[in-house]
Computed example of a mutant assay.
Amino acid sequence: MSSSIQANMKAGLPSPKVRKKREWSIGKIISNFLLILSTLFFIFPFYWIITGAFKKQTVATAIPPEWFPLHPTLQNLSDLFKNPVWRWTFNSFLISFVEMIAVCLVASLAGYVLAKKVFPGRKLIFGMFVAAMALPKQVILVPLFTMLADFGWVNTYHGLILPAIGWPFGVFLMKQFSQTIPSEVMEASRIDGCSEIRMFSTIILPLLTPALGALAIFTFIGSWNDYFSQLIMTRSTSMMTLPLGIATLQGEFTTNYGVMMAGAALASVPMIAIFLLFQKAFTQGITMGAVKG
């Protein structure tokens, strides 16, 4: 037994291991408490929307608020489905899903080429993608709308999907992740006689799964909530997406907040489902990118 430990025992002080365990326990309690507070803070808006969907109009706007619906009603859902909600939901699913698949495919191809192929102008092209990430969508909206109008693509599905396929952030993410793939794997596949297409589809693409999971979530949620672009590009009620259709339920003089909360709750379900579906790949993509990027 060392002299310091003996001195601590004689003085009635705990050993360094015991003190360290106590400090670690206190720190863990404080960190868990802060995490619980943060979780409640971020979950509360979703809870308020869910409970508001079952409140009457007079209760939904009452002050002080009713934290839990004492007299729940399904009238809000009934009023919501008097509108073409299923058509709006179909439009949102179609646009978001097709855009997610297209962005993941194009970004993985472009990111792989920029990371693993050597050709003149590679750094310049990648720099242009990085610079494009700094441009807000509103800056290019007017020339984009003019171009789509010339093509006759306004108020069409391809007019809503195609402009978002070349997402600069998607290319950037896939390029950074593709750099972590060992070049020896590619060289071995070439020695075995693999073509570029077969090597990418059977070897490279499975290795990119974590990054693709993260990109799929970002793309789907971004497309689902892309209210501004969809507002500009759509003209008819039948082409509206779910967030856009729910926004039209707001009246000029009065607004039924219970119906709007029911619509908001319905619109949030697909995003939660997509996140839970790709959660494992999303976590791997973020953590691996942070360590190796």
Rank of each mutant, 00 (worst) to 15 (best):
S223Q: 08
L231K: 05
L249A: 02
G263C: 04
I286P: 03
L141Q: 08
W167T: 03
A62H: 15
Y157E: 11
K56R: 13
V98N: 02
G263F: 01
A262H: 00
H71G: 07
G127I: 13
S3E: 14
E252G: 09
F46E: 06
K28G: 06
A110T: 13
A53L: 03
A115H: 04
T73L: 07
A164H: 03
A265Q: 04
M288R: 10
D226E: 13
L160Q: 14
S183D: 14
S236H: 08
A11E: 14
I30M: 10
A149P: 01
T202C: 13
T156C: 13
K55C: 03
T51V: 15
G245Q: 00
T39R: 06
G289E: 08
I204C: 06
I232P: 02
T39D: 10
I36S: 11
L141D: 02
I63E: 11
T248N: 08
R198L: 13
I95Y: 02
P206T: 10
T254H: 11
R22G: 08
T89G: 07
M233Q: 07
K175G: 02
S25C: 09
F41V: 15
P182L: 00
G159S: 10
L135P: 08
Y157Q: 07
A247Y: 06
P243L: 05
R19L: 15
Y112T: 04
K20D: 13
K28Y: 11
K17Q: 15
H158Q: 15
V18W: 08
I26V: 14
F90K: 14
A53T: 01
A267D: 01
A290K: 12
Y257R: 02
T234Y: 00
K280P: 05
G285S: 10
T283E: 15
M240F: 10
A110E: 02
F42S: 14
M133H: 07
I274V: 15
L205C: 14
W86T: 12
W88A: 01
V106P: 04
H158T: 15
I29F: 09
K28M: 13
R22N: 14
A110Y: 01
S78L: 07
Y47R: 04
K17C: 07
I246C: 02
F97L: 12
N91I: 07
I191E: 08
F177A: 03
L212T: 04
G258K: 00
A188N: 09
G263Y: 01
L242V: 05
K116F: 03
A262R: 00
R190W: 08
K116Q: 08
T39H: 05
L242M: 09
L80Q: 01
P72S: 12
L114M: 12
T219P: 02
T241D: 02
H158K: 15
A107K: 00
E23V: 06
